[in-house]
Design a protein around this nucleic acid. Structure first.
Lengths: 203, 203
DNA sequence: CGATTTGTCTACCGACCGGTAGAGAGGCAT
DNA sequence: ATGCCTCTCTACCGGTCGGTAGACAAATCG
């Protein structure tokens, strides 16, 4: 009976839960299989989290914080409009490379409805606000094509997350999407796409 | 005991199953609840489809055929590059307007893995091939920014489906996403975005 | 009209899932 | 050493799910 103890157990359980919630969906992932993967009995898991929903909320919180710190670090020192946009996209793709289940988990969180998703989005709200201000400023300066900045941010989100999560579609449309090479290719494609979409009408 | 009989029962069951698979996911939707919604017992449903997976396959087939015929009709008579691209996007948004669970079901199908998704994609393969040829021709003619046509098609897919399915994200980023007005707004945004992304570098 | 096919039902089963109750083992402070 | 707190476990429960067996009625056909 290995006694790993409090906080560490908690975080490994959350990490595994994010993995399985992302892979199998909230309903599809069972407490039993999450516990087994961690090397512990289901009841041990229920000692740390009173029920499945509480575990989900901990996962949402943790995922939000992780993405937030990742993006904050990526934005460090980036000044121009394009540098910052590229840093965000590159940061998300980097996170996806080392943690493939993360994008799938975020999408599952969105699927579960606004109540669940807000738990994730609230952590990122400062970044969201900054992003919208930044896009608006870029438009005012004529560096970015004029449009609704919030809708633009949403469209950018769907393009990035979509290209990270729709592996089956990629397979059907393009073929061969395994491994890091495909990920890099998709990142490049999204970067080109976004650059083209941000570019003002006449430059 | 109303005896609706063969084919009609089948199609109403498939329609309801697409609805619930899209809303609750494949695992989350139970045969019981699908049957009840149709107004029939679970065992009647199992009379038409030997098991849950067979029901899913019928749904994938039906969804593919429906989308295929929708898009074929939308493309009728459209000649220019932009007209055709716009017709496809407008067609998909139109289908989403009258059948809100359809995009969610497609995304769920993609989540279930390539095996399941291919059942849906195979029906659309002729359209996929035509789309890639069309994009390539547009690039050769200098009407569309030069890039990998297959990857471009994938990115367009993610932008359209994402903006139709990520309602929770839209809510968190923009606020107010209920009703047809929001759908029209998203269609307009996707159209602008895609137009900007397709536009050649110098015009 | 009787037989067969088609469609719907009741009854039930084994597996699994989320969650409860509570025992017991190691670490820590007194 | 004793007692307490933290952590992990075994045992079990009620509910749900996918699926089987088979009765039975309506439609169809000879």
């Amino acid at each position: 009976m290995p006694r790993v103890g409090g906080e560490q157990r908690r975080t490994t359980i959350v990490a595994e839960a994010i993995h399985q919630f992302g892979r199998d969906g909230y309903k599809g992932a069972s407490l039993e299989s999450i516990a087994t993967a961690v090397g512990v009995r289901k009841q041990t898991l229920l000692y740390y989290f009173p029920n499945k929903e509480a575990l989900l909320e901990a996962c949402l919180q943790a995922a939000g914080e992780r993405l937030g710190s990742e993006l904050s670090a990526a934005l460090e020192g980036k000044e121009t409009y394009w540098d910052r946009a590229e840093a965000v996209i590159h940061g998300v793709f980097g996170l996806a490379a080392e943690w493939p289940e993360f994008p799938m988990f975020v999408r599952e969180a969105a699927r579960l409805g606004p109540t669940a998703f807000d738990r994730f989005a609230d952590v990122l709200d400062p970044l969201r606000k900054r992003a919208i201000e930044f896009l608006q400023a870029g438009m005012d300066a004529g560096e970015i094509r004029d449009q609704d900045p919030a809708m633009l941010l949403f469209t950018l989100y769907t393009a990035v997350v979509g290209s990270l999560t729709e592996a089956s579609v990629l397979n059907a449309v393009v073929g061969s999407n395994k491994g890091r090479a495909s990920l890099r290719r998709r990142e490049r494609e999204v970067l080109l796409f976004v650059r083209a979409a941000l570019r003002p009408a006449s430059r």
